Simulated assay, not measured.
Amino acid sequence: MKRSVLGLDRFLILLLGLVLLVSGVAVGAWGLGYLSTVWSGAPDELSTTPATDVLSASWWGWAALAGGVVLGLLAVWWLVAHRTHHSIGPLRLPGTGSQGRLTLDGSAAADVAADVIARTRGVHSAKGKTIADRGQLVADLHVTVEPDADLRGVAEATDAAMADLAVVLGRSDVRSRVTLDVARSARQQSRVS
């Protein structure tokens, strides 16, 4: 999500909050009879006749349809602007010049690192990918361990695999994130009799 979209969100939320705050104070003051001291033209009671006249006008249906289409398009734009796009393309390897002819699939390299971790005793499964997160290149690994796994051994294997991945990628700007989950039950080992 772009900073401009975040800035627009914050501005619109601030504006909506101010409108609701002022409206709430005005309605409360009007209900208590204090609004007429601040605004001399404050009505004593409200009439719904103008709203009824607008709703019964012949152009109202077309205006409501146009407003609905505009609001729908704004809603679709807002949803698209807020989607997170984490995937990255091929990574240019250092030393390949400005043309970047030597590239590497960062997600495939992270998945190989996850496969290495998956061979560790006590690891149920592991998956890896390389993503862009908040402007940083991140090797994101998700490791599921057995309930009785030796976490120190898993941590050592993970550190070694991430160090190897850093050498393979040959880039100093890659960060790593490893998420450990615990499997609900231990994996059943097959028996040979």
Score class of each variant (00 low, 15 high):
L151D: 08
L93R: 13
L18W: 11
A114F: 10
V25T: 13
G17I: 03
L16Q: 11
L15S: 05
T96F: 03
G68C: 06
A161R: 09
P94M: 04
L151W: 07
K129T: 09
K2Q: 06
S190Y: 08
V54A: 12
S23A: 15
R121Y: 03
G106E: 11
S4I: 05
V76E: 05
V145T: 14
M162F: 01
L16R: 05
I131L: 04
L55Y: 12
L73T: 02
K127V: 10
W39M: 14
G67A: 15
M1W: 02
S4Y: 03
G41E: 13
W59A: 14
Y34G: 03
T158C: 04
G128P: 15
D159W: 03
S87F: 02
M1P: 02
W62H: 09
L93C: 11
S47H: 07
S56D: 13
T120Y: 01
W39S: 13
G106W: 07
T52W: 01
G61F: 10
R191V: 13
H82F: 01
R83T: 13
G128I: 11
S36A: 10
G67T: 12
A186C: 02
A63P: 03
L73H: 01
V145W: 07
G7K: 08
H86Q: 14
L137K: 00
G31A: 06
V69E: 03
S172Q: 12
A113L: 05
L151C: 04
P43D: 08
T96Y: 09
R134V: 00
G41Y: 05
H85W: 06
A166N: 08
P147H: 07
T52R: 13
